[in-house]
Design a protein around this nucleic acid. Structure first.
Lengths: 206, 206
DNA sequence: CCAAAATTTAAACAATTGTTTAATTATTTC
DNA sequence: GAAATAATTAAACAATTGTTTAAATTTTGG
């Protein structure tokens, strides 16, 4: 029977921190144990292996990653408002979890998780009816003729990439982290205007 | 004295392939040796250590990464033409080196290379006069009032990210690699229109 | 309070890591 | 062609890897 709930949670928190910053290959189980302040064997006592622990962390991260979209989509707003809100919400979310995009994409890239994305991640998004709302707006000529997949790629590019490219951008321009954060704010506003201007046909409210 | 130039090159090629796909932490020197078809000791005979070998590969990758920009910038085109050409060229370049953006950003992210970007990477770009051309166009009202850093972030986001997000996007939409490649082509055209429309004030040719 | 169960630990496991050594093979040089 | 040099190899190095074992400690339940 569980004696102390917080031990398992402490390990998960430590694993999340370490995996997120160093990646699966970039850390050892002893790194995580040190972060917890306890023994290596404890990790395998609660979670059966480094891989199992990672999968757990990854799933949680993926969940967070997608969750931030759902609230916006299931609200009662126009499509244009949803796009604007999505950009706002995603930016403030990633400001608090700046390592998330890199962690997700890198883990997928190196097949650290082979399974296809579980439907319990994707169904909630589909269930918001956002796709139907988009197709309807397109049919009514409120929205440019563009596939939802290309809209997604456009949004993700402009929302995820900046948080992955901090080091590159700072080195490229020779600027400080503070400078970069300023650019980030500006970028958000640019992207909002850029994308809504492009997507939505003027003189109608979608 | 060198007996066979191609041995050193074969190791570099193998190291590039392995590092690019698996990352520094994701592979062992024996993985590379196996790819070469020879002994581990040979790697340290030509390059002193795994780290030194990696730094060499990384620098080459970064050089390629930036090189693709320079040709466009130093050409004799209008700013708008340069932006359009840059997007075209970058896309065809990354179609041939799709792992490059992920490799660069991931390596920087995990401080696999600590050194700041050497000036011999950045100076050639500055020497093309692209920055001056941009500021001039801005002063003449041909270009929207936006910083060059934000333009860069915009371009990089839309050009680099798609190649990093292939797995995520495929899983997210449940599509095949062929589907994704189609989306990529479309994305390029969208981005070209999107960005030029946004940057350049209409009824003038920048 | 005491046995049983759950938790935590230290220690050891074999396998793998990057690197080095020393011996072998191939090439160059005169 | 023989001595010298360069290239390549197999083997071993100590350190680190993920995992397991078995003992110690703590908590639980009667």
């Amino acid at each position: 029977m569980k004696r102390d709930q917080s031990t398992e949670e402490k390990i998960k928190a430590a694993a999340k921190k370490v995996f997120m910053t160093k990646g699966f290959d970039g850390c050892s189980v002893r790194d995580i144990a040190k972060e917890v302040g306890s023994n290596v064997a404890l990790l395998n006592y609660y979670f059966r292996s480094k891989e199992k622990l990672f999968e757990l962390i990854f799933e949680g991260a993926m969940s967070d990653f997608l969750q931030s979209m759902i609230a916006v989509f299931s609200s009662d707003l126009t499509l244009k408002e949803k796009v604007e809100q999505l950009i706002d919400k995603e930016f403030s979310f990633f400001l608090e979890h700046p390592e998330l995009p890199m962690f997700i994409l890198q883990s997928l890239h190196q097949n650290k998780t082979d399974a296809p994305m579980p439907s319990h991640f994707l169904e909630p998004i589909a269930n918001t009816g956002i796709f139907e709302q988009f197709e309807k707006a397109k049919a009514q000529g409120e929205v440019r003729d563009i596939s939802i997949r290309n809209v997604t790629l456009l949004l993700m590019s402009n929302v995820h990439y900046p948080f992955m490219s901090k080091k590159l951008t700072m080195q490229f321009h020779g600027i400080t982290a503070e400078d970069f954060d300023e650019d980030l704010k500006k970028h958000k506003e640019i992207v909002k205007e850029l994308i809504t201007n492009y997507l939505f046909i003027s003189n109608t409210k979608a």
